[in-house]
Design a protein around this nucleic acid. Structure first.
Length: 657
DNA sequence: ATTGAAGAGTAAATGTTTCGTAAAA
DNA sequence: CATTTACTCTTCAAT
């Protein structure tokens, strides 16, 4: 099927032709046959890089009115925004938490790109443009099964469909076990395909030997860079080379053939460690990219003076990089584009990269397949490993992609069973989680969509959860949620016990509009009241309050720091809203104190470099804490306003941050 | 012979991925 | 669970 045969205006056909897109891929044909261009609901469960963006564009460009593109990551939103903006004569806007340029008027655009939370928040704040939508595309819809964010996605989608019953829904999903259930929920036609533009071979490496799923094998030479006389390593160990050495060998092997590599490991420290090890292998030299790599290194070195940043710059000069959430956005973007431009040979990453922006490589090596969960090691979900492996193979550049799982004799079978031949998990709704339910029940009440428990259930009736288990399954849980919200002072029952209406209190309304969770709203209100009665409520006091909420990411408190942090809390007891014995989760509270302390020092003029050294956090961690603090402080200000309490330190903290 | 440094080997302690959200004459 | 740290014990060289 040809692009020209689609019901698209000439200028789009030309635009795609300029990019070499004239013929449709098989999954795209299937989507068109299912009716994406005719306003039909479609769920496409297809591998990454098999042309999902084109399916989305066909739907939005043929829809009879404005469209919305919902995706889970800011970086992804920006990527999609750019690909829509490149289309001739399409007026596109972007709306994410960090992007100010969107302006107040989101109405009147052909396409709006936004994160799911942003859409949810827009609905809560009474945005009217959502009612005019003709089409909504949901990217990575399998995130429905995610702990916190899944419920937001399903409730948002249910609300959109409730408000515009004729809206076209197109959902794009990774390959999962139950795509038919998702399609059934959305009254959509399912398009399922394993087709990829580049062949993917998946293999397991034990010792020096890789065995691929198509029966091929390949031997890699381990450790040839350090041992001059072949026999030295033989007698030293009977077990053979360790996983890191094998991983390094697999990387070198791929690079020797001119292919780039992605290596996935468990933790940040190990990503940096593997990069350090690989720097010995002179990869930049082997690929002939030394000048470009050096230039990227210099560029990154200028971002900041943190140890992490300088270490990354050094690795880049050697043609390798590490990548994890402790890096700042600028670091990450530099690494990603350098890799895409073939200016570096390898990225050693934590699982961040698996679900992020488009970074394909010839070979993907998954060194670690287990994750530490606090008490034990657990196998990574098949879906996650498949997403890592799916990054292998660049269309048009690589003859085929290779994904290699590093294992041992004892794990070989399990790896094959679980990841090579195994199916990914089914997507299951997490809406029944009490905390999520409280949030969305409050939202339904505060926006005025529901005034009784029956109406709340009606709103939730359109969710994936309801389709799976029946809305009746939620009745008890909703009743509990309402009781909890009444106790927390977020909603009130008005009228007699027989026929009452549920309405949001002023605090509940502000909480919902500020997009903080009910628990956060209550904690801030309590905190503000105690702070108002304190002799010396300082900015540290305010930081302690906002950091002691579930909306602030907590900061890891090492065993070593604990004693010192305890002393700090004791010394500053007069400026904290929680007494030393009062916290019901003392450990958790002490972590909040650490975050608060970092923020206090930050507005006191401490530099990123100092804070990163002193508190053993990555520069990216600091950035994200500061950003959250800005948001939570503004929520605190709004809440102080609604309860009529004045805490000058809030405004002071907010202006200084 | 004593001291100190360096290294090897072992037992105990320690470490943990990620992402999004507000809004004003 | 795997890696790092803390500690013990050994070896060897220099005084």
């Amino acid at each position: 099927m040809r692009v020209r045969s689609l019901p698209l205006p000439e200028r789009f056909v030309d635009h795609f032709a300029d990019r070499g897109i004239r013929e449709l891929y098989p999954p795209q044909v299937a989507a068109v046959e299912a009716g994406v261009c005719d306003g039909a609901n479609v769920v496409a469960a297809v591998p990454t890089a098999s042309g999902k963006t084109f399916i989305a564009q066909s739907a939005l460009l043929t829809a009879d009115g404005p469209g919305l593109y919902v995706c889970p990551l800011r970086a992804l939103a920006r990527e999609k925004y750019e690909s829509f903006a490149a289309l001739p004569g399409v007026d596109v806007a972007i709306s994410t938490g960090d992007f100010e340029a969107s302006g107040e008027e989101l109405a009147g655009h052909d396409v709006v790109v936004a994160t799911s939370e942003k859409v949810d928040s827009a609905i809560r704040n009474g945005a009217e443009w959502v009612d005019d939508l003709a089409c909504v595309v949901v990217d990575e819809v399998h995130l429905l099964g995610a702990e916190r964010r899944g419920p937001t996605l399903e409730v948002t989608l249910a609300t959109l469909r409730r408000r515009s019953p004729s809206i076209q829904v197109v959902a794009l999903s990774a390959t999962v076990d139950n795509p038919a259930e998702i399609a059934d929920w959305l009254d959509a036609t399912l398009v399922e395909s394993e087709w990829r533009p580049v062949d993917l071979r998946t293999g397991v490496c034990v010792g020096r030997e890789v065995t691929f799923d198509d029966g091929r094998t390949r031997r890699v030479s381990v450790g040839d860079s350090e041992t001059g006389s072949g026999t030295t390593s033989e007698d030293a160990t009977e077990e053979g080379p360790d996983a890191t050495e094998i991983t390094a060998a697999l990387v070198v092997d791929a690079v020797a053939e001119g292919g780039q590599c992605l290596a996935f490991v468990r933790s940040r420290a190990e990503a940096a460690g593997l990069a350090e090890r690989l720097a010995e292998d002179r990869l930049a030299e082997r690929m002939g990219i030394e000048p470009a790599a050096a230039a990227v290194g210099d560029e990154v070195a200028d971002i900041d003076g943190t140890v992490t940043g300088q270490e990354l710059a050094d690795r880049l000069r050697a043609g390798v990089a590490f990548h994890h959430a402790g890096l700042r956005a600028g670091h990450r973007a530099a690494v990603e584009t350098a890799f895409r431009e073939r200016e570096i040979a390898c990225i050693c990453a934590t699982p961040t990269l698996a679900a992020g922006v488009n970074v394909p490589a010839r070979r993907v090596v998954v060194r670690d397949q287990k994750r530490y969960t606090g008490s034990s090691m657990e196998w990574l979900p098949t879906l996650e490993v498949h997403q890592m492996c799916g990054r292998a193979g660049r269309p048009g550049l690589d003859p085929h992609g290779e994904a290699v799982l590093v294992g041992e004799d004892s794990t070989r079978e399990e790896l094959v069973e679980r990841y090579v031949e195994g199916n990914p998990e089914a997507v299951e709704s997490k809406l029944a989680d009490p905390a999520s339910l409280r949030t969305h029940v409050l939202s339904a009440v505060a926006t005025g969509f529901a005034e009784t428990e029956a109406e709340i259930l009606d709103v939730l009736d359109g969710t994936f959860y309801a389709r799976e288990t029946g809305a009746g399954g939620l009745a008890d849980a909703v009743a509990v949620a309402v009781d909890d919200l009444v106790d927390a002072g977020m909603v009130r029952r008005r009228g007699d016990a027989e026929s009452y209406r549920i309405v949001a209190t002023a605090v509940g309304e502000t909480t919902s509009k500020q997009y903080v969770r009910p628990e956060t709203g209550s904690r801030i209100v309590d905190g503000l009241r105690t702070a108002a009665g304190m002799e010396r409520a300082t900015t540290l006091t305010v930081f302690e309050v906002i950091c002691d909420t579930p909306d602030m990411q907590d900061t890891y408190l090492g065993n070593r720091e604990r004693a010192e942090m305890y002393r700090f809390a004791r010394k500053n007891a007069a400026r904290l809203t929680t007494g030393m014995g009062e916290a019901d989760d003392f450990e958790g509270w002490l972590e909040s104190v650490k975050t608060a302390r970092i923020l206090a020092e930050w507005i006191g003029g401490a530099t990123v470099e100092e804070l990163v050294e002193a508190y053993r956090i990555g520069p990216g961690d600091l950035d994200s804490r500061v950003e959250r603090a800005e948001w939570l402080l503004s929520a605190a200000e709004a809440l102080a306003d609604t309860i009529g309490v004045s805490v000058p330190a809030v405004t002071r903290a907010r202006s200084r941050i």
